[in-house]
Amino acid sequence: MVSLNARERMLRRAAADIVAGMTVNLGIGLPTKVLRYVPANLPVCLHSENGIAGVGAPVANSDADPDLIDAGGAYVSTIPGTSFFDSAVSFAIVRGGRLDLTMLGAFEVAGNGDLANWIIPGKFSPGAGGAIELAQKARKVAVITTHTDKNGRPKILSQCRLPLTASGCVHRIFTDMAVCDVTPEGLRLTEIAEGLSVADVLNVTEADLVLPEGPLPTF
């Protein structure tokens, strides 16, 4: 059903939302992988919670500066224009509304834009890190996630069952099957992965979807 390169196409499609001039924070996991599809010469300022604006490319351990990691612990480099600052300034950037876009992972996301991505009570509770502030304060919040969990169950729900990271914060959802936008009319299916039918998407989406009238763009 979902073709082999669906994940790559999801990442590539998400990367297209990162445009020149943005300040962007990419969460750990799938969101960080979006970077592979962002042109190296695109003028974008990558923010990292641990105090970097202008994160450069990842570096191999043999070339790494032990004092220079991103928030996910990967060794990174600087680029011309990089700045360093303390954690209070870093979150002034976040809460002060200087992030144009953040892309985050999700355990669950709901049709109304509620996001749960930090705790599964009794199973997984490592703490939220900076996720709550990113979700609440970035001007645009995108979720990148597989459409279903590893057991094939929907991750886009009518209502989150897990404790929320933030309510109503998500604007757009990228999955390996679809792109959906949170709108006042409901969750709108706006794009679909090549080779899939609308019925394929509806089958594994718990939230109600607003469907377009014409044909759906593919990615």
């Binding site: 809460r95 890190g129 709550i132």
Partner: peptide
């Protein structure tokens, strides 16, 4: 939350008793 942790520490150092936020 990470930035709230940083800010709670910062205001303590700045001699302020606390702050009000919509985070969380």
């Amino acid at each position: 939350p990470q930035g709230i942790l940083a800010e709670r520490i910062r205001v303590a150092g700045a001699g302020v008793m606390g702050f009000v936020t919509d985070i969380g």
